[in-house]
Design a protein around this nucleic acid. Structure first.
Lengths: 381, 381
DNA sequence: TGGCCGCTTGCATACGCATGCATAAACGCA
DNA sequence: TGCGTTTATGCATGCGTATGCAAGCGGCCA
């Protein structure tokens, strides 16, 4: 069964991979790479205490003498012990894992949401189990799995979840929060920006700047967020006597927005102001307008975005936009979740996070109404 | 040793009920929202079989009669049973969770890596536990936690891991793979693009197009990937008689690259060709060059990026770049990991994923060497 | 000195699932 | 019909941690 030593060594030198193959087999055993991880019992043995003492040493607020805890931590250190969170979750029925379902990762706003969420959760020792879904496919079959992983909560953003899933989660006691969505699924809490107010404000802003022929580039046709912004925008413009509003959809994609912009600028009487339902799409619009239509911004065309992603402040974009602070939204989301975890019977919440119309260089500015707040110029008539 | 059967059952019932009481809150109890999730035992009881039969029904390849499996699945269905993956992980010592450590989410390349990885893993029933790290802080304290979650593997990208962490993981039998990094930490497998070849190729390309005064915008100063590209690029240019190469660092950020570009274009004799170590930085360079310096691209200035992110193909950028296919890299990474999981003794692997110099509109094209491959124009002299 | 109290510690068991082993059932073949 | 063989099922136990309960221990006061 075990070949003589010399051939094996020779083989090792020559055929690297082959020797490696044998390393797990029953013959070779030089340094047992898959040693099992130390457990609390191992630590206990080394420290001369019981397993429960070790457990308590790792449980904040548990009753252990300082002296023995020290001894135990010492032993744990030398063994390289790390608590097994799977086992802990089993016992405590709490995983400290949040599921995050998302689809639009290329959009910097959502990248920021992920980042902020990860940061905030880490502060409290929790982590993210990621579900990236395809925007054109239902995320449901995937999300069913959150019921198997015993996640403590489910956060949805740029994704849909069916009512059935919501019900199942509710039955399982898993709080659900959606960020930046308007849909009102019972049992799902909602954190959103002030979509309606923003629509109104931007309409006022453009009208006050003297624009007459205005365009709107929405996200997808079934996006509630986009719809609310659009409706508020269009209706307020109508109140102001501007009823000729061109609407296109960019599907929240870069290329889609570029196409929409081309359409809006290729008409006989092209628009002279454009509200895009996301900064990401506004960037595309900006590029198309400047490069393909040689528009001078903002003299020939005003562009306003939505989100105020970090890139919007960069000199190359300098985008006028309505802010929707990802950090604040994430914080609210976590607050709501913690509330729901503490208090399971609680009803779903709806919260709105405030934003401002940030005045930068891509849109004509009305003569009045610009004020400075926290170092930023905002329009607040 | 074993107490009579009846008392044990009673006690069991008591604990059970108490837990329930507390979990719903002691006061209200109208519709018990936090009902405990059904377990295999519950399903077993309903189906009139043993718990192990249920377990086997959910284990592919286990020995169960088709008739009873059907009965069991039926019972599971009516109870709304979902296997508890924490418990399963405990028992099998496999979580089907991969840890992904990442920092540069705003860079579309990494967004794509996340997306592809998520997609591929889902196909085999695995998921991502996300660790977003701050680029200017060591990810280590955070990554220690991967040892607590019993992840099956650790994937690093746009992040560093210390040798200590690598050793700990190795001891725990957790494979580590880094994507798009050049550092040679023993025990960490590596998937990378052809950084060196790319540096050479782009140097040849620019020289052949007649450029004389050339710039390079690297990532961070300590990025191995960037360094390899730079060294290959600079040394090949030197061989070709071009020794005047300006080097700046954009820290892989948009704004950083914009600043670097301004420097390179503000000089007395500004560069006429620019190689950026990532597309994301190239976008910034493009904008600065066009908007702030009114450069006509590519007549006044050639810009070449690296990565070939989806945006690079968009009409508004139309960026000439060296490709580094995220999907292929992710696939290799998973292959390597699966190999290491199957075969724990295995040595770390280093694999290189091929790319091409994709010819688009932001750089002057040499008279010879352009061929079409898979519908893309590439430079292959 | 005796008794009470508070702090530590260990014991036993539960968490939900997987799996080796033994047993029972079904089947095939002569 | 009888026996060997395969297949299906249940039992018992283990995975690593948390925690209620009881016992031990020391201190403090009367």
């Amino acid at each position: 069964m075990s070949p003589p030593l010399v051939p094996r060594l020779i083989r090792h030198e020559h055929v690297h991979i082959l020797t490696q193959r044998f390393s797990t087999g029953p013959t070779v055993n030089k340094k047992s790479p898959a040693r099992r991880a130390p457990t609390e019992s191992d630590v206990a043995k080394l420290a001369g205490v019981s397993q429960s003492a070790v457990s308590r040493s790792f449980t904040p607020g548990a009753s252990v003498a300082e002296s023995t805890r020290k001894k135990i931590l010492q032993a744990a250190q030398t063994l390289g012990y790390h608590p097994n969170l799977m086992a802990r979750s089993l016992a405590t029925r709490r995983s400290n894992i949040f599921a995050l379902a998302i689809s639009d990762l290329e959009n910097p706003f959502y990248a920021q949401v992920v980042k902020e969420l990860s940061e905030r959760l880490r502060e409290t020792g929790r982590h993210i189990l990621l579900f990236v879904s395809n925007p054109d496919r239902s995320a449901d079959p995937d999300l069913e799995r959150v019921l198997s992983y015993q996640v403590d909560a489910l956060i949805l953003t740029a994704t849909t979840a069916s009512i059935e899933l919501a019900l199942q989660c509710q039955k399982a006691g898993i709080p659900i929060v959606q960020i930046n969505r308007e849909s009102r699924v019972p049992g799902i809490s909602t954190i959103r920006g002030e979509n309606q107010k923003a629509g109104h404000r931007i309409a006022d802003f453009m009208a006050a700047a003297g624009h007459k022929r205005i365009g709107f580039i929405g996200g997808t046709r079934d996006s509630g967020t986009s719809r609310v912004r659009q409706e508020a925008f269009v209706s307020r413009l109508a109140e102001l006597g501007i009823s000729d509003v061109q609407v296109r959809y960019g599907d929240y994609t870069f290329e889609g927005a570029a196409v929409a912009t081309r359409e809006l600028l290729s008409q006989d009487r092209p628009v002279d102001a454009l509200f895009c339902a996301s900064d990401y799409m506004a960037f595309a619009a900006l590029d198309v307008a400047k490069r393909e239509f040689s528009k001078h911004i903002p003299d020939d065309l005003s562009i306003v975005g939505y989100d105020d992603v970090p890139e919007a402040a960069h000199a190359v974009y300098d985008l006028t936009t309505y802010s929707q602070p990802a950090a604040a939204m994430v914080e609210e989301a976590i607050k709501v979740i913690d509330l729901m975890i503490e208090n399971p019977g609680r009803r779903a919440q709806r919260r709105e996070v405030r934003g401002e119309l940030i005045v930068r260089g891509t849109a004509k500015v009305p003569t009045a109404g610009v004020v400075t707040k926290h170092g930023k110029k905002i329009w607040h008539p």
